[in-house]
């Protein structure tokens, strides 16, 4: 067994699976960095992802275009998260509850619409997922090549989004405003920043990214839609954001930790290792709790985290 684990093929396939499993979490986490930095804890990512996954699959199935499916999923993600934006910024609802409500609603709507459109079948309808695109030359490097440069296009896009979101957050006025409304909404308001608008945009960015994450699940990682396709990945993304202390680069590290522990248990199961895979599956969640402890202590969370901004109140 150990020979098998330390072989090059095992390592390569393990790391390749890590990337595939980390990508949807990375997508969702990058968007949530903006949402959470603006002071909004959107626990409804899970719901956004499942609705978008359904939309991506359905559109791809009927139009035959994966990219049309991918884009529709992003649009659906934005529309769906606009409910969250309205609830948290206009209705000043308790964000935790709004998120839970939208998760239940999302799971219901996705499963309902899918069943109405496709009916009950013995074999689920399938599509051809995004193909692997081998980058010339780079993909020929041993181990690194097949792991990093033999992926589908949505994966490459996710990795490109890391520097993009870093730039947006750290080097633009918009990023500064997002941080400001999360840190001190009243001061931002006094400065003439439209707090509600910035917060709304931050939630919608999160929705767009969760939409892409959902699309990745049903059209790139898998080639079909099932009710339990997302299974906690939205929550993992929320956890990764906190783990990363809102830094895009660290969000990649967090996503890879989740992806790796998931990939490891799958691979170990595949070769029939006698290690209980359930204990491995616990790992990312325990890591998150520890990461949360180290973050919360230094008070690195935005000061107005989960607090609605009311102009009239003091």
């Amino acid at each position: 067994m150990w020979n098998e684990i330390f072989s090059l093929t095992f390592l390569t396939s393990l790391l390749a699976a890590t990337i595939r499993l980390a990508t949807p979490i990375l997508y969702a986490a990058l968007g949530q960095i903006f949402t959470q930095k603006a002071g909004i804890l959107n626990l409804g990512v899970e719901g956004t992802m499942i609705v978008s996954a359904m939309a991506a699959f359905t559109v791809s199935y009927f139009s035959g275009s994966l990219w049309l499916g991918f884009i529709s999923a992003i649009v659906v993600g934005v529309l769906w998260s606009s409910i969250m934006a309205w609830l948290s910024n206009t209705m000043n609802a308790v964000q935790v509850i709004a998120g839970i409500g939208l998760n239940i609603l999302g799971a219901g709507v996705a499963s309902y619409v899918y069943r109405i459109i496709f009916g009950v079948r013995t074999l689920p309808p399938q599509i051809d997922p995004f193909p692997v695109v081998e980058l010339p030359l780079l993909s020929k490097i041993p181990v690194i090549g097949p792991v990093l440069f033999c992926n589908n296009v949505p994966t490459y896009i996710a990795f490109l989004l890391i520097p993009v979101s870093w730039f947006l957050m750290e080097r633009t006025t918009f990023g500064l405003r997002v941080k400001m409304v999360g840190e001190h909404p009243r001061a931002s308001d006094a400065k003439g920043i439209h707090v509600t608008l910035i917060r709304n945009i931050a939630v919608l960015i999160g929705g767009a990214c969760a939409g892409a994450a959902g699309a990745y699940m049903s059209t790139a990682y898998m080639n079909l839609f099932t009710d339990n396709l997302v299974q906690g990945q939205g929550f993992m993304a929320v956890a990764v954001v906190i783990f990363s202390k809102f830094r895009p680069g660290w969000a990649l590290v967090g996503s890879l930790v989740f992806g790796f522990s998931n990939a490891l248990q799958m691979r170990l199961q595949a070769i029939g290792a006698g290690i209980p895979n359930q204990l491995l599956l616990m790992l990312p969640y325990i890591v998150t709790i520890f990461a949360l402890i180290s973050t919360s202590r230094k008070a690195e969370m935005p000061s107005a985290y989960t607090k609605p901004y009311v102009r009239m109140e003091r």
Partner: peptide
């Protein structure tokens, strides 16, 4: 009608309650 209508109604109840 799929069973998921139950989830939809529950989700709607929460959303309406918090508004």
């Amino acid at each position: 009608i799929p069973y998921s209508i139950v989830d939809i109604i529950q989700g709607l109840v929460i959303v309406l309650l918090i508004t």
